[in-house]
Write a protein that binds this DNA or RNA. Structure first.
Lengths: 151, 151
DNA sequence: ATAGATGCAAATTGTTTGCAATCTA
DNA sequence: TAGATTGCAAACAATTTGCATCTAT
């Protein structure tokens, strides 16, 4: 349930299009959506919101820290709700399923490496591309499976 | 020095455009080049090779394992010679400098993670975005600095 | 000779922008 | 009401493709 506060705090006016777009992400907490995905969902919902507005909102929301943006190999950017936690992604090469994970050891090692090279790390992208081992891999559109790795 | 064999072995005909494109990468072993970078270099060299041909060649060379493709945040794909070794990248947020590194521990951990999630890892992208700590960071176009981390 | 390669222009795809009309604070 | 926001169409940037013409094998 997106609250108007989320927008106000970012200096963005509370408008219908923006609230509806946030709602879409609330209703799809497990997904990684492209601008077009969001646009289609809105259209399906019978809402008349332009694609350009979606793009503008996504950009603003990302800057405001409400959303996180990812660039997988697909060429299109995908967005997900910023749940505060940082995590990396594993994309299934069979069905495009996205599994999230986070490994503190890797995170630590990254900082050490940057440090050793004379840099202060600001961000990173880590994405694994892999094949399902188990049989039951449905060839379906993008879908997310949350997963917390033992630490 | 690109050898015709590199192309023949891939089932690609040895043509002037292809050889010249390979040469460009040989002459810029340290760089990460976009299709347009390659095209401009060729034009500068007085060669009349179409941009579409460059794109086609880059794709074919990547599939043939001669080049490696990277998608940084820039939106454009960059290519580099496949030197056999795997490595990850660190991009300087100030000057776009690209530093290469490889950390066996991270590699190992990645495989373990994929394994634990029920996947067999095929590939991965790891890119760190960071700020130079030291002063001498020139704001210049993309340029690569090779670096082997202690292992 | 012939399948494959090239150049050019036109087409695609994902994303951004100009602008007049329309809203929020 | 003033300044922000929206929708639409046009503009863009990166990459791909159709096709008639060449070229390596």
């Amino acid at each position: 349930m997106p609250s108007p506060k989320d927008l106000q705090q970012s200096g963005l006016k509370v408008t219908m299009p923006r609230m509806k777009i946030l709602e879409v992400f609330e209703r799809h907490r497990e997904s990684h959506l492209t601008a077009d995905d969001v646009y289609r969902i809105l259209v399906t919902d019978g809402l008349d919101i332009g694609l350009a507005t979606v793009y503008r909102a996504l950009t603003q929301f990302e800057q405001a820290g409400l959303l996180q943006k990812q660039n997988f190999e697909s060429g299109k950017a995908v967005f997900e709700l910023n749940r505060g936690d940082h995590h990396d992604h594993l994309v299934c090469l069979q069905c495009d399923r996205v599994v999230e994970f986070c490994d503190p050891e890797i995170e630590k090692k990254q900082a050490e490496i940057a440090d050793k090279l004379g840099f202060r790390i600001q961000a990173h992208d880590l994405c694994l591309y892999a094949d399902c081992i188990d049989q039951g891999c449905p060839h379906r559109p993008t879908q997310t499976v949350l997963s917390n790795l033992p630490r």
